[in-house]
Simulated scan of single mutants.
Amino acid sequence: MLAFTRRLLPLTRSIRAYSTPPPSLLDGEQTIYQKLTEKFAPSQLQVQDVSGGCGSFYAIVIASDAFKGLSTLKQHKLVTQTLKSDIEGIHGLQIKTIVS
């Protein structure tokens, strides 16, 4: 029997709510951060380009009251719909949603 483990995004940056993206974010990270902040008013948000800076794979951790009462699938659909135009050209997206 094969055992599968789930690799979670390491929290290399502190997770905080900002009105503007933290200055340490790359351009693609800033764009995603701003859109998610405007749509969900998250209590926690982390956006990280995990492709080595080329913008082909992003990992997102987001906590918001907007996810209350929704299944994980519906929460992820809300995030991907918000980022639809931004994620069309990327290879992958890892999303972790948290109800705050």
Rank of each mutant, 00 (worst) to 15 (best):
V99S: 08
I90S: 02
V99G: 04
D27S: 15
C54A: 04
V47H: 12
G28I: 03
R13G: 07
T80R: 10
G28Q: 01
L25A: 02
G28C: 03
G89V: 05
K96N: 10
D86T: 10
S64I: 01
R16H: 13
R13W: 14
T80N: 15
Q30V: 03
K39N: 12
T82I: 13
I15A: 14
S85A: 11
Q48H: 09
S51K: 00
R7A: 06
I60S: 11
V99H: 02
S56Q: 13
K68S: 08
T37W: 07
L73T: 12
S85Q: 14
C54R: 06
D86M: 09
L70N: 03
I87V: 14
G55Q: 05
Y18P: 03
S71N: 08
I60M: 07
E29G: 06
L45S: 05
M1N: 06
P10G: 06
G92L: 04
E38V: 06
T5D: 04
Q81W: 06
L8H: 14
L11A: 10
L8P: 07
I98A: 07
G53T: 01
H76C: 10
Q30L: 01
D86W: 02
I87P: 12
S19I: 01
E88G: 01
G28S: 03
K74V: 13
T37V: 09
P42W: 10
S51M: 00
E88F: 03
T82K: 14
R7M: 05
L25N: 09
S43A: 10
R7E: 06
I87Y: 12
R7S: 11
I15K: 05
A3V: 10
I32A: 11
K84Q: 11
T31I: 13
Q44V: 04
A41R: 08
V47P: 13
L2W: 10
L26A: 13
Y18I: 00
Q34R: 14
A41K: 15
D86R: 05
L11P: 05
F4I: 14
V79K: 08
R13I: 12
H91P: 04
S51P: 00
V47Q: 13
K35G: 01
M1D: 12
I95F: 11
D27M: 07
R13H: 14
S51L: 00
F57D: 09
P22M: 00
F67G: 05
L9S: 09
S85R: 09
G69P: 03
A3G: 10
K77Y: 09
K77L: 15
S56D: 15
F67W: 01
Q34M: 09
E88I: 02
T97A: 08
Q30D: 02
S24Y: 12
S19D: 15
H76W: 09
I87E: 08
S71V: 01
S56K: 07
T31W: 04
L9N: 06
P21Q: 08
P42N: 05
L2A: 12
T31P: 04
L36P: 08
Q48A: 14
V61S: 13
S71P: 01
K68T: 08
K74M: 13
V50R: 03
